[in-house]
Design a protein around this nucleic acid. Structure first.
Lengths: 411, 411
DNA sequence: AATACTTTTTTAATTTTTTTATTTAGTTGG
DNA sequence: CCAACTAAATAAAAAAATTAAAAAAGTATT
């Protein structure tokens, strides 16, 4: 049974008709994944396979437990067709969103529902073996507590900050102790296929495949946090670049200033347009005599966090609102660059700063109008993130899901 | 015979086995196109089709005249296999590179050899119907003079400057007189499928598929002329964006100056880093007393062209060399943005300014090192254009070729 | 030079898939 | 409520593709 389940997604290479059947089954699953429930007739049209063959394959997939009959469609004038669709509880994917001081974990079913989540698990990300072991323990514990059989979890997606090569599974910023790729080490420890992803890109994954994206195929996701990240969707697929380092939007040379970025360069976009910049400028303003709600609370000015400023803005703190608008304007000028280059259908704003809503969106929007070519800009919608805090976890699951789906299909 | 030739590339939709055979034949052609001549055994491995079936399809393609037997391979220890490959003279593609004061036309055969070209045909591009009629006449004349039968020309690619939607065939900057897309009007006039392309992107097409790109799948082509254009290759495919307006690199907001760009905005990259900027700054320098070779010749300073400055630099004119270096440094800073965003394997420099070779390359290269993240930058090679002046024509042909190849296969 | 070994190509047998025809299921309109 | 119609599913027949086996065409080695 569990052997059967895995057959379609196993990585053993098939040849001849076995290979073709495997490909066709995946095509069916992908199609159902894309359009939801559908009929035999529709499958046969879209996949260009004859009806009897489709029926055969669908029956096998039903036996495998991956697909089921969801009843008849509404009348179309003749015999009513059976609708087939994916079975939610047939397989699961785990997303592990590792943050600097906590971990979020979530489990996604085969139909992309988030089944269980555990948020803000205490954890301290350090580049030590102990920290790695602790992370493995947290994942193990989550799997043990979970009501889902472990062999039904087909893949795990782990989001880490820093430079990650998703294709090879290497992490360069954290846990880079062994010859083997980190993903492989996770795999041997957990017994489940594991994939790594950069945190911003994982969030983008979530937004692209389960958030505010519907049929758009060229989309940008801007992650506005302490730093500024970017996820790129090109022709419906997440773009990686040669080594998976694409989207270093925060570090494009954009300003002529003397502020040294944590990447070591001067003039990066992040130095003036980011959560970090917001906190820095806020403190400077306070020091030079500006007033704010945050002064009146029992706040130590030096320990003010990005979150504090965002909350203050939500409570109508004038200084916070003003500074967020300034930051938004600058990010907007940066996004104008992206729009000119990518001519995307949609730009999604996410990350902590997106929680300020119109306070950041409106100045950003007007900067777009001011700085990008109108013919190009007219094509691009601007939306706020739909998944919010959950984008990372969901994105991790979806990335793993995509990886498992894609294996041996693209060769 | 000519009917047979077109069958594989016809746009009539096939169903059932006819559809599958058509797809498989296209797969064979694409594969041969990619890897050159190969054997039956190799085709059967790579395309996952059984040997007898491959032999069948290959024989049919031989009958159609699209493929032929190129003799035996070198020994591999057993029976020597026959090599099959595309037949160069089985089909042709026309590229029409329309410039402001001239037209270049070229004919490419099925194996991507440039058979005939006619360069610098006198023509004046104006947005009038007369100008359009003149262009049609030029193309007709070229086809008539050509030794190739007209029905063997499967597609025409026309490069125009300005905003072009390659997918719909609309041109917004030139010849936008009718409801119908311009491509359709060309088609009815010439009787051959016609596709439009933006000039910078067409050049990129040429470089990507027949120039300095080998196996790289993520490549940028920077067209350095009076303006600065960009062609983007993502995962081996040319990137268009929503409406085909991607790559407006020249108009990203990059400087805080008061120079008004011809696009109407201020601070565009082009205002300080382009051929236009070079000419402007050159004239300013001369006016404020700088010296140059160009002064000693019988040159009217006001009528100095980009080409003049490039030639002067090639003759060791110090001012020209200096200014080109300055421009190169600024373009390099812009390209650093691209590298951070795209993490490409390769960046190709083309266009008129690329003719200055190291004079522009070296300062540009050092700006890259200075302004882009080193981990990302290390991935990116920097090469000069291989096709030079011919990039446009060749790109036009290749674009049309790709379009004809892709039709009804992607659907 | 003959034999053993490799690898490709051809042929024949078998399996798989499609096609076509038929049955089943349901709708609609008189 | 029943005939006429539409569409889906099934079954049988036909076609097509794969598999397996044999033959052909080489190479290498003794």
């Amino acid at each position: 049974m569990s052997k059967l389940l895995l057959e379609v997604f196993s990585d053993e290479v098939a040849v001849g008709v076995a290979y073709k059947n495997k490909s066709l089954k995946r095509a069916i699953i992908s199609y159902l994944d894309e359009v939801g429930n559908t009929t035999i007739a529709d499958l046969n049209k879209h996949l260009n396979i004859s009806t009897p063959k489709i029926i055969n394959l669908v029956n096998e997939l039903i036996q495998d437990g991956l697909i089921k009959d969801y009843g008849k469609v509404d009348s179309t004038g003749g015999r009513r067709a059976s609708m087939y669709g994916l079975v939610a509880e047939s397989a699961f994917f785990l997303g592990v969103d590792v943050k600097r001081y906590s971990v979020n974990i979530g489990l996604l079913d085969f139909k992309k529902n988030l089944v269980t989540t555990k948020e803000d698990i205490p954890y301290k990300l350090e580049n030590t073996n102990d920290s790695f072991e602790e992370l493995v323990k947290i994942i193990e514990a989550f799997l043990d507590e979970s009501p889902v059989r472990r062999d039904k979890v087909l893949g795990i997606g782990v989001n880490l900050s820093g430079r990650i090569n998703n294709a090879t599974g290497y992490s360069y910023s954290f846990f880079h102790f062994h010859e083997e790729p980190l993903a492989t080490i996770f795999e041997t420890r957990l017994g489940i296929r594991t994939f790594l992803e950069n945190d911003s890109r994982a969030m983008a994954y979530g937004e692209f495949y389960l958030g505010n994206v519907n049929n758009e195929r060229n989309v940008l996701f801007v992650n506005m946090d302490y730093g500024i990240g970017l996820g790129i969707l090109v022709d419906g697929k997440v773009y990686y670049g040669k080594s998976g380092f694409s989207g270093e939007f925060g570090h494009i040379p954009f300003f002529t200033n003397e502020i040294i970025c944590h990447c070591g360069k001067k003039g990066c976009l992040e130095t003036e347009a980011s959560g970090n910049a917001l906190v820095r400028i806020f403190k400077e303003k306070i020091r030079s005599g500006s007033s704010s709600q945050l002064l009146h609370k029992d706040h130590d000015i030096e320990s003010i966090k990005l979150q504090d400023i965002i909350e203050a803005a939500q409570n109508d703190d004038v200084l916070s609102i003003e500074l967020i608008a300034q930051i938004g304007e600058k990010i907007g000028k940066g996004v104008a660059v992206l729009i000119n280059l990518f001519n995307p259908e949609l730009v999604i704003l996410g990350g902590t700063l997106a929680l300020t809503g119109d306070y950041i969106r409106l100045p950003l929007r007007s900067a777009l109008n001011k700085y990008s070519l109108s013919l190009v800009n007219n094509d691009s919608q601007l939306k706020m993130s739909k998944l919010g805090e959950k984008a990372g976890v969901i994105g991790g699951c979806l990335m793993a899901r995509n990886k498992v789906f894609a294996k041996n299909s693209g060769e």
